[in-house]
Structure formats: C-alpha cells, structure tokens
Design a protein around this nucleic acid. Structure first.
Lengths: 139, 139, 139, 139
DNA sequence: GTGGTCTAGACCACA
DNA sequence: GTGGTCTAGACCACA
C-alpha cells in the first residue's frame, strides 16, 4: 500500500524498496512486529519480479530492520524504528552535505547557494510532506 | 593538467571525465577553440585506457561541448562555456533541490533542514573551493 | 528478423543498425514498448560483435528511440514511431534536396535534372519497395 | 580563388578539393594547360595542411585530370574537361538515384517523392547556380 | 601524430 | 538471462 517504484529511475528497484521500507518504518507507518507483504504479493502489486523484492528483503534482513518468521513472513524488528530514523537522518544530512559541497567546489558563492536553498525550501513549504511530521523528529 | 579521476568511485570513469571537462569549460579553465589533450595522452596521464577517454569525448561531442577536427583532435565548441555553465548550475540546483525535497518528504521540519544546511555551509566556508570563484557567477 | 548489414559498406555497422531500427520503428514494424533483441542475440544473428550492437543501442538510447529496462533489455519508447518517421522523412527529403542542389550548382538545367529524376523513378517503379507502403505516409 | 572547404564537414578535406577541382574543370573555370596553385600556396589560402592539398593533387594526377610539369607545377591535362564533365554527370545522376531509391525503399510513394523533388527544384530555380550554365551540357 | 571503428573478452549489478 | 563499463589491441582514413 505504501510503495511506489519507478522502473525508469537509475536507482535499482530493490534499493527503492529498501529505502521506502526504511522510511516507512522511520515514519512509524510500519510498526515493530508488523508483517510485511510477502515478496510474491508485493511483487504482484508493483508488477515487478519477485526475486527483486526478495533481494530487497534480504538486504533489510541483513541490516536488522526486518526478520523472517519461518512460515509466517517478514516482520519489522524490535527497535527498527529508531535504527531507521537514525539511518534516514544520517543519509539525508549526508546527501544535503554532498550537494552543497558540490556547489561550493564548483565555485558558487555561499550567498548564491543560500539563495538556491531558500528558493527550494519556500517552494517545499507549499507542498504537503509525504508523511506526518513527528514531534520526536525534532532534536 | 586539470583532471583527476577516482577509480574507486561508483561513478563511471568516463562520466567523471565528462563532468570535469564540462566544469572546467564552465569555469573558463578551458576556452572555446582550445584543443583537448588527445585521448591517448589523457589516458596516459590518468593511467586509464584510451578507449575510456574516447568514450567520454564522444559523449561530450554528442552534447555539443566539443567537436572533432579530423586528424587534429577535439576542440571546445563556440558557446560551450555558456552551455556548460547553464548545465552545471541547473545540475547543482537540481541536486540541492532533490536532497532538500527528500528531507522534507521524510518529515524533517524546515527548521531542522535549515540547521543541517547551515552546519554544512559553515564547515565548507573553511574549505578552499576547487576553482576560482567568478564574479559573473553572481546573479 | 528485420536486420541485414553490409560489412563491406563504408557506412559503419553500428550506424547501419541505428538506421535500420529507426526505419523499422518508423514503418511500424517494431512498436512502442516492444523489446528489441538483446545485443548478444542480435550480434549472433548478424555474426558481429555484441559491442557493436551495444554501440548502436546506446546511440538509439541517446536519441530517445529506445530505453533500457534494467536487467530486461531495450524497449522502444513511447512516441518513437512519430519521432522516427519525422527523422526519416526529413533525412530523405534532405538527401534528395542535397543531390538536386548539387546538380543545380554544377550547372545542370532543371529540364536535364527532371529527366534524370524521371528515369530513376521509372526504373524504381518496377522494383518492389523494401517495406509496405503506409497510407498515413501520404500527406 | 575558386575553392572553399568546410573543415566541419564529414567529407575529407582532400576529397573536397578533388571534387572542386574536377567541377571547376568540368565547368570550364579552369582550362587545359592552366597551372593550378602550388600545394603550398593553396594550403596557405585555405589555412590547411599542405600535405592535404598534395594528397588531393596526387589523386587528381592518378585520375588523369592534372599532370605535373617538373619544376613548374601541376597543369590541367588535355581532355580533362570532357573527362570531368562525364565523371561529374555520372556522379550527380548516381547520387540523385541513390537518394530517390532510398526514399522509395523506405516506403514513400512516387507521388510523394515527386512532390519533394518539385519543391526542391522550385526553390532552386530562384537561386543562381554557382557556375554559368553551358549549352554543351545539354544532350 | 589524430579520432573512428571494430573485435574480444572481462566483471559488475540487476531481474 | 540483461545492459553498463572497462581493458587491450587492431586497422583505418586523415592531417
């Protein structure tokens, strides 16, 4: 129900799934103990290859986000929310940092960079975020 | 003299070259009509295969940044500086926008995002940029 | 099933493939969404190197005729038929125009040029065209 | 004085020279016994490499259009006008034939092809040809 | 010397 | 299985 994948994207499909599961867990949309849809079901829903979903689930398993309950399916681990939130915030901060560093090293002035940032933030402020904002996201 | 590639990077070598040539042209480090080092020479300098450099040059040719003078080499096209500057600025702004949008849609507040941005900019301000900053980069 | 290449020709093999794919798409012999034969398969069929086919496919991709579905193959883009038809018609008209202009500037009279054209068309009329003629090719 | 070359063209420079000399001889702009500019002089005038001009002259010599007078230079052969005119007319007719055949095999109808031809001829009729039209060009 | 083309074969991520 | 990337090395026309 939560996932949408873009087969055109240059990001591998299995990574899009990994990412969306983590973000959903971080945002509390999927809670600890909750069952994920089976690889076959999710694959059917997204019209992709079941192996691709299985690949994503394996990676999530290796990272300790989900675990397999034999015969039942994959459930979200205890503590996964905190883990995913931490990972998500680090990833987001890192990507922002990279994009700013790139602009900086290309020679754009801090003023111009801040102008670009402000423009984007203003535009985003008029857009509803995809997930509910949570108070505990704040430091 | 300008190029440095990172074979470890997950960005293809030929794309690193494409990008660095464009940025060098945008920054005025290579000017219209100027000959690029031949594929063989540049390959030798970077310790990579000449075909990889040729691949990068072909892409730059397709994008209208350079053109081949038969038997003489590849020269920077007339108007390439403006083209590269535009592409570079668009790419930088887009990447910043994407990273901010990602954070926004993940539920981070504008305040938190701005805090992350400020932290990065402060850190960068103590780092020399890779290229000279140009006045005409300013709006 | 459609392609035939001439290794003797002074036109590069990969360009012969590019051209034939475009013409096949323009003629409706390959439709949007349809998978092209994989580089390896087509190479085997044409008894050439897979890299040469890949080169052709890359060029078709750059021109927006086909796109790659990761791990699945290359499919004809939406709208490629119109694009290829337009390109084909422009290319044909341009080549005819060039050949006529050349004759004109060499000093041949319009009457003599028309005589040459008529002779060729008469001869061609007795030759079956390579593709079915389509009604919508008519203005 | 007659020649103009296009370094961007995909036709080799030496072939552009060969062609222009032949066409000039065919059109009577250069007559039998007349000296061509030396390779060095022509190269200087066209801002190209003398080797390239020499390459063109060698080809013209092999085809019997010009001959070298030791110490004097290259002169147009006796009978070169007829030879060049014949070659020119054959080449022009062949190129027209190829362009028409290409359109034919792509599936364009004779009517559409004739329409394209008429359009081009009408446009050309309003353009002065590069050379004087000669009565003896007519059959 | 230059780029353009082609072959042969490798390894990779991905589906 | 698929395409993407890279290496290595060949031969060509051209300047």
């Amino acid at each position: 129900m939560f996932f949408s994948i873009d087969v055109q994207s240059d990001v591998a499909i299995y990574l899009q799934i990994v990412r969306q599961v983590k973000f959903a867990v971080a945002a509390g949309k999927i809670r600890s103990g909750q069952l994920l849809p089976s690889a076959r079901v999710l694959a059917g829903r997204l019209a992709i290859n079941p192996n691709t979903v299985a690949h994503a689930y394996t990676q999530l398993q290796n990272e300790g986000v989900i675990e397999s309950l034999r015969g039942r399916g994959m459930v979200v681990c205890e503590g996964a929310a905190a883990l995913c939130r931490r990972q998500r915030d680090e990833a987001l901060a890192e990507r922002i940092g990279e994009s700013l560093a790139e602009a900086w090293h290309a020679g754009l002035t801090p003023k111009k960079i801040q102008t670009i940032v402000d423009g984007h933030l203003k535009r985003l402020a008029n857009t509803p975020p995809s997930v509910h904002r949570e108070a505990d996201d704040e430091p």
